[in-house]
Design a protein around this nucleic acid. Sequence first.
DNA 1: ATCACTTACGGGTGACGTAAAAATC
DNA 2: GATTTTTACGTCACCCGTAAGTGAT
Lengths: 288, 288
Amino acid sequence: MIEMYLLEALAAVDECGTLSAAAEKLRISQPALSRSMKKLEGILNVELFERTKNRITLNETGRIAADYAGKILRSEKDMVQAVRSYDNSLHMLSVGYCAPGPMRIVPATLARCYPELMVTSGMYKEEVLARGLREDQFSMVILTHPLEEEGIVSHYLCSEHLYVSAPPDNELAKREKEGVYFREVDGQTFLQIAHVGIWDEIKARMIPHSRIILQEDQETLNAIINTSSLLAFASDISISTFRRKYTPGRVFVPLLDEEATVRFYCAMKKRTEKKLSRWIEAIVSEEE
Amino acid sequence: MIEMYLLEALAAVDECGTLSAAAEKLRISQPALSRSMKKLEGILNVELFERTKNRITLNETGRIAADYAGKILRSEKDMVQAVRSYDNSLHMLSVGYCAPGPMRIVPATLARCYPELMVTSGMYKEEVLARGLREDQFSMVILTHPLEEEGIVSHYLCSEHLYVSAPPDNELAKREKEGVYFREVDGQTFLQIAHVGIWDEIKARMIPHSRIILQEDQETLNAIINTSSLLAFASDISISTFRRKYTPGRVFVPLLDEEATVRFYCAMKKRTEKKLSRWIEAIVSEEE
DNA sequence: ATCACTTACGGGTGACGTAAAAATC
DNA sequence: GATTTTTACGTCACCCGTAAGTGAT
């Protein structure tokens, strides 16, 4: 049997042309490589090289052997790649989101159901998410609509409702109960966390005349909000998870347009649905 | 990099189901195999087995890995096979004949042109020869006609003319100069060496009423001929190469039918023609 | 008790590197 | 003289086998 290191050596010699160059590439000494090539010829019981005193060149047989060697080495690389990535798919769950809201709920509930699973999260545009799901870059994606495709199933996950966060001395604070329409605040300047996914498009449509000041860091943003008289945004999810706690002085006024409510659906392939069945059931029951 | 022995071990475990059985198959100890499987998992950084205290089973990842392993092992076998057989084709020349006459000429001339070449000879029916040439079982075949096919070239090689070998006291011996026709000897009993290829068919057609006593061994046949009053066969080739010497008392009477002369052609693939160019030129010049 | 796997320990093969020689450019 | 391959020799890694241990059937 020809061991892999011999095939690798042969491929390197084929590639480099000389033993010395190949030895350097392989990070072994040149005599070691010379021996390996002799050993390979011994195993095959075939001459692979034209040898002169200080020159060694692959002959036709050697080139054929080197081609096979290259092919086998690629197979081996493929194997390592495929096995590792399959194993990864068992231990990792890559989830893509179109908005930060569900990202505050899903990873936590997944971790509760499957403590052994490593969950990765990321936010992308919905087209990217759909394509990534098809191509197995994501195990699951969170969208604003069910994805109706062959082999893919979608489940309703949760909804998120948008609020305006107003300082207590602002006129709007009085409207905490009855709410406000987008058009009433269009033109105002808002503070907002960066990267809110789908909400960017909604705000661009509904309050086109507003300026929105973005802040990358959530803690910094909270600090600014607490000392600022500017309006900001919140949602039922963000309020319940941290806004109430970290921007305690603020009044949250619900937006009354239907565009201020988004329904989220999780979409995944059938085989993932099977793997996540416990979580899906839990989500469905929480929803009731 | 995963060495081949690890892949072989994995494939054996996959095949045998238990480490002990696989170890026996591989002719190594069971602890050694246990270690190898651990090493493989270490290299891949992946679990390949479900392990209980006294049971080890491939998990899904392991089955995927084992499939790859089998594939790579087959590739390696293919490589050895292909390289050896290519090398063989450089050093061996397998020639198939339809008659023994050319077999007395061709191997000797080939050996003179290419002393480094190992030449193998064998006699077969012409259909078998044509197929064998196509499928590379023969490097060259000797036929009674040129082979007109894509990628195959044919050259005229030599002709062979049939004689009747008669004891000096036989009536026929007087006809040494003028010759004799097949029909004149049809019905007579002949002594003949076994395995004369194409000549069997010619004789079956031209002297259907004759009995032909076959003898496997040439030396034995010569001895019988020298002490027998039966007729026998000879040809210009056999006469010049050994009949004159080993059956010295005999008179050789030429057969006058055109069927008694056969022209031989060597057929080979284009690449073989290139390899044998020196020999082909020599044959052509001898022919002139 | 037997079977199947793992752990522990010692041994030998063989792959490696260094050094030096031979030969070509 | 520089480069390339081969030969020689000592070293060390690692793969193996034996023996012992653990747990399940």
